[in-house]
């Protein structure tokens, strides 16, 4: 699809902005609609677009499989880890109040990290699934 001159150029122009937009959605989830999940999906969509246009191999070079797989696990670990930190600091599980001296600040901090965890896992999984599906050769049709 790289050969599609028009597509290639527009995609090149758009992708960085899509990524920034994804991060914007991520970090402004507190104030406007959006949050970790949506941001994860959008970021993954940007990479998918890249993969669609420049071919799966280049997408794989950009974000290697190993990284993606680590992301898949890492997000859940971050999320669950935030819970454990709350536990360690003397609160209940997933208690954000204890994360900072001021309870509200603690909540904010907790939500922030939790959303990051969600985003990492989601984008990791979406990308991984995309790689998995797009990367397979179709078996010869037996019909």
């Amino acid at each position: 699809m790289k050969g599609f001159l028009v597509l290639r150029i527009v995609a090149k122009m758009l992708i960085p902005y899509i990524l920034v937009f994804a991060l914007y959605v991520q970090f402004h989830g507190d104030y406007s609609p959006g949050g970790g999940f949506q941001a994860g999906v959008i970021a993954a969509a940007a990479i998918m677009l890249y993969g669609l246009i420049f071919g799966l191999p280049s997408a794989r070079r950009l974000v290697p499989d190993a990284v993606v797989e680590t992301m898949v696990g890492l997000g859940v670990l971050i999320y669950a880890g935030v819970g454990l930190v709350g536990l360690a600091l003397g609160g209940n599980y997933l208690d954000y109040f204890v994360l900072a001296r001021d309870p509200v600040a603690g909540q904010l901090r907790g939500i922030f990290w939790v959303e990051i965890g969600v985003a990492i896992t989601v984008s990791g999984v979406m990308l991984k699934i995309f790689y998995m599906f797009a990367g397979r050769r179709r078996r010869d049709d037996t019909r």
Binding site: A11, K12, M13, P16, L19, V20, L62
Partner: peptide, 19 residues
């Protein structure tokens, strides 16, 4: 975010004359 994205864009090789 912007720095990260730019770094990524460089890796994608899309931050050229065309992109």
């Amino acid at each position: 975010s912007v720095v990260a994205v730019t770094w990524l864009a460089r890796h994608m090789e899309i931050a050229d004359r065309e992109g």
